[in-house]
Design a binder for these strands. Structure first.
Length: 121
RNA sequence: GUCCUUCUUCGGGCAAUCGCUGGAAUUUUUUCAGAGGAAAGUCCGGUCUCCGUGGGGCGCUGUGCCGGCUAACGGCCGGGCUGGACUGCUCAAAGCGGUUUGGACGGAAAGUGCCACAGAAAAUAUACCGCUUGUCUGCCACUGGCGGAGAAGUAAGGGUGAAAAGGUGCGGUAAGAGCGCACCGCGGGGCGAGUAAUCGCACCUGGCAGGGAAAACCCCACAGGGAGCAAGGCCAAAUAGGGGAGCAGAGGCGGCCCGUCUCGAUAGGACUCCCGGGUAGGCUGCUGGAGCGGUGCAGUAAUGUGCCGCCUAGAGGAAUGAUUGCCUACGGUGAGGCGGAAGCUGAGCCGUGACAGAAACCGGCUUACGAGGAGAAGGACGUAA
RNA sequence: GCGGGAGUAACUCAGUGGUAGAGUCUCAGCCUUCCAAGCUGUUGGUCGCGAGUUCGAUUCUCGUCUCCCGCU
């Protein structure tokens, strides 16, 4: 269950705006994640942003693909009913694969207690 | 054979696992395809789409030696003229030629304006120093010399500047001067070659009038309607708003309409239905084309064309990837081996593999691009004949 | 994807063919018991970068880099 269908993605600008406005901000030195509960039990959905300030198109593609792949391999471990938007930082371009994995694992640890507490729905 | 320079071209390969986008089968899993030479900058030109559009002029923008190619171009090809570098002929210079590399290369005798500083003078030339000849005059002196003042002539010499108004020589002159002459240069004409730009001439003519700059304004010739796939077309939720219809008319005067009178209803409202515009969103435009690869023919070439073969990304918060292993190229380190030494070879390990990511589509230009492989041209050295 | 605009001193801006300027800032002096204000002087520039035109370029032309804005 490591696939990445369209149902597991944020596809509209409105989805992204909702995550920014009503979500919780979780930061590390490689990226910033915005997490928002939708209130249903569908699988978590993910979105990745890559503005022009991060570099040229080639580098932005690389940043997005590496981070997306790392999240995709752990997709089933994210809580259901969650919308997540990732804003990568420029340092992610030169980061080692193991370092990205470590930061995503840390994000998962921080999300787990949220499951019992009350996130804005 | 080695090395160097320039140009062209290729732009690491294979496999496993987990994935993404599109197509086709089918039905739930298979199978096929999936970044570039610049996909970039958006600097030009087109295709396509919508809007505008009687004709002409002004204005604006662009282009600018000539000819050709092209759908078109500010692109490409060929030619001319011209600057630089190297080089051959030559004792050397000039001149002529070769190779290579550049040139926004129409017009400055259409007009307006500009040329700082320096310099006498910077574009209808000009007289600062100087040179020459008269005039007046001072001193020495006595057919002369040295001065001063002012007048006229002069562009040879001086210095300034990026640039000083044809050059050299001879004649000429008071001194000079295209003032005259010869040669060179320049303008105009003629003849010849060439489609033309332009070139040639032992031809005629003009004493020469024409400094630079048009990437100053400008003049001339030619070209250009505007916007751009976020163009444009189709479908169309919710909410708000717009238009229409229905829900309330009946009776009198009168042949009927308008009008007017009486009664009823209250309505700038609520409800029902319909219509069009249109937002979110969806579909389309969307990829088979000035296409690619061979090969023949025409042409110096750019290019055109005949025949054969091929189908080669279509996303849309945006796919074409991630991880690992092996190979490969290069760099570093370097066990070990060869060697007297210099050095050569080299297991293993580590690192690196450029510039860079399609967004409607083509043709150009410009810019970015590490190492290495292949090819072509030129040069140097060595060896052999 | 498409269309516009700007780069000059540490900062904000003038200048638009002829030795590159103003204000603030820096530093020093005067003034004041001291500080501020004021006055005087002073430091600081590859005019974003690279070519070209010109005798001469910040200015004109071309290329290039960076930044900003608009269309949704």
């Amino acid at each position: 269950m490591h696939d990445y269908p369209k149902a597991a993605r944020l596809l509209k600008p409105a989805h992204f705006r909702a995550a920014y406005d009503g979500g919780e901000r979780l930061a590390c030195h490689l990226f910033v994640a915005f997490a928002r509960r939708r209130g249903d039990l569908d699988p978590a959905r993910f979105g990745f942003t890559c503005p022009r300030a991060l570099g040229k198109a080639h580098d932005r593609n690389r940043i997005k693909r590496r981070l997306r792949e790392c999240v995709r391999l752990r997709r089933d471990r994210f809580p259901a009913g969650l919308d997540l938007v990732f804003n990568p930082r420029k340092s992610l371009l030169g980061a080692a694969w193991e370092e990205i994995e470590r930061q995503v694992e840390k994000l998962l640890d921080r999300l787990s207690p949220c499951e019992s507490s009350s996130l804005p729905s």
